[in-house]
Computed example of a mutant assay.
Amino acid sequence: MTELFPSRDVRAVFLDVGGVLFIPDPEAVRAALAGAGLTCTDRDVDRAVYADGPADLGMGSEDSADTVDWHVRAFAARLARAMGTPPRALEPAMAGIRRALTRAEWAVREERATREGLRALAKAGVPVVVVTNAEGQAEGNLRRHRLCHVGPGPGLAVRAVVDSGAPGVGVSKPDPEIFRIALSHVGAAPAEVLHLGDSVRNDVACSAAVGITGVHFDPYAVCTDRSAHPHVTSLTQLAVQVGRRRASLSPDAPGPARVAFQAAPMR
């Protein structure tokens, strides 16, 4: 396993939400396809989220309607490929697919693996900040699904949820300013922070613009830029490497204590 951060301590981890903790709700996607006489599996939807290039689901609030449409169509093309269906067959369902991606609530991705990854990240003992493009609802959704919380609650205790749509934020990825806001919540230099996200534009490149190491969440290892930036296929893989880095330091090295994690029942 290639070390993500071989030269120094990792003092904080930032997490994206969409594409890492959540994906478009497969039920909403199936509802969109039903009108075209089609259906898909949960795995089909999951595979369609992850692009082999820049056509990922990393959308921003400042994106034009044409740019959003391009992302939606790219997702639909990947979905068709996963389904073994010609892309033109999905054309009648395109409006519904767009709603599933941009309006419907997203679902927890592979719930057991996601909770295990968050538990492993808590064990690694670094402060965590969530950095996401949303509409102000991210913190509530994470708490309701018992994944993450600010203050007491079930799941992973995080320092902050920096939601582009929340009061006082006012910027969204790919504007690097959102990562400067996230840095204000941790006592770490940018070079001591990892950010995990599924979008090359919004996560890897945007965090790198302020000196943070952007790690590409690539569950199916489809990214073609293998040497351009680090990749992991799971949240647990990232947590293990962070824990390994911290364990390799001397016992009196500065660093935060273990992060709180309160187990939540599977639903």
Rank of each mutant, 00 (worst) to 15 (best):
H231S: 05
P251H: 10
R201A: 08
N141R: 11
L249S: 10
V222Q: 12
S227D: 08
R146D: 00
R146T: 00
S164R: 01
H229V: 06
V150F: 04
I178H: 10
S207Q: 12
A189G: 08
D225K: 11
G214Y: 06
G170I: 06
L156H: 02
I178M: 11
P152T: 11
T213L: 11
E139H: 07
H231G: 03
S172E: 10
V204G: 07
V186D: 15
Q241L: 11
N141H: 00
I212K: 05
I178N: 14
V150G: 09
R226Q: 13
A228I: 07
A221P: 05
T236F: 08
R246P: 06
A191H: 09
A239M: 01
A166D: 14
S234Y: 00
L249E: 15
L196M: 14
V232N: 01
T236D: 04
A228Y: 08
V222W: 04
E177H: 15
D203N: 15
A247N: 12
V162M: 07
V204F: 09
D175Q: 14
E192W: 09
V169C: 03
G165F: 14
V162C: 13
Q237I: 00
V242G: 02
R159P: 02
P174C: 06
H195G: 11
G165H: 11
D225Y: 10
A209V: 02
A182T: 02
A191P: 01
A239L: 01
V200K: 07
L196S: 13
F179V: 00
N133L: 03
S250Q: 14
C223A: 14
R226E: 05
G151E: 03
S234E: 01
S164E: 10
A157S: 15
P190H: 05
V204I: 09
A182E: 14
G214C: 13
Q237C: 01
D252P: 01
L238P: 08
G187S: 13
A182L: 05
S227G: 10
A134E: 03
